[in-house]
Simulated assay, not measured.
Amino acid sequence: MDHQSPPFPDSARHHPSRPDYGPAHRSRADIAAALLWDPTGNDARAAERFITHLGESELVLAVRPAWLRPHGWGLFVVTTDRVLYVPHDDSDDVLELPIEVVLWLLEAADTNEHGHHKANLIDLERNVTLWFEGPTSITAINIAISWAARQHTAVQSGYEPANTGNVVEEFSRFAALLRARETGALDDEAMRGAIARMFGVAPPPS
């Protein structure tokens, strides 16, 4: 996730059109729910770092431990405005993406010797590899991303719906093909044919 901006920009702290949920602290309902797994040690310190910089109109949807090269372990956070990776160390190297550009967290078939599960965070420009403690963490993050993205793309009164050109739907179909290929349900030839049909082009030669 080499998208990087100054950590916790002021623009993400307050939205006049949204209700205020009050100052951010561990006992605020959304934060307490996201941290119900009770982080300790380095996770707890990373949690305090991102809580300090949350806006009063920004809700926390999910928080899970994640590993990202070259930083190592930290916390992956989904809010109503953005996704964040907050490393365990005390540096200001907080990585961030606005929720509007995030498409999916795609679970890969790979696990390592510690039982951690690989996933790829897909945005409008690239994908970034992360490792999570298990598939339930990936599912929780995906649910949060999907919900937040829907809030940003929902048609509001007085506004026309955004023209996405069906890119989200096409990506979901492509992600399903990738999962089928990784599990062995599709071989290389079937995968090439399916992708060609999706994009309306002739299959490439095998």
Rank of each mutant, 00 (worst) to 15 (best):
T80E: 11
P39F: 12
A185V: 09
R82N: 03
R192N: 09
P16I: 13
V77L: 11
H14F: 12
V77G: 05
Y21P: 06
L124I: 00
L75N: 08
H3K: 11
P161S: 03
R49A: 14
A47N: 01
A34L: 06
V78Y: 07
R181W: 06
S57L: 10
G184E: 07
A46H: 05
L97R: 03
L97Y: 00
T52V: 01
W131M: 01
D90E: 12
A148G: 04
I122D: 06
E160N: 08
S27R: 07
V94Y: 02
R28C: 04
E170A: 06
T164G: 07
D110I: 14
A144L: 09
V168A: 07
P87E: 06
I143K: 10
L35V: 03
G74E: 00
G165Y: 01
D93Y: 06
A119K: 07
A140C: 11
A148R: 04
A119M: 02
E125H: 14
E58T: 04
D30W: 08
D81W: 13
S91P: 07
I143C: 08
R82F: 02
R181H: 01
A62P: 13
G41H: 00
W37V: 07
E189V: 11
W131N: 00
D30H: 02
D110S: 15
P16Y: 04
D43S: 05
A148H: 05
T111N: 01
F174G: 03
E125Y: 08
R82V: 03
D188C: 05
G74Y: 00
G74C: 04
V83T: 02
S206N: 15
G184P: 09
V63A: 14
L68P: 08
D2E: 07
P203Q: 05
L35M: 02
E189H: 04
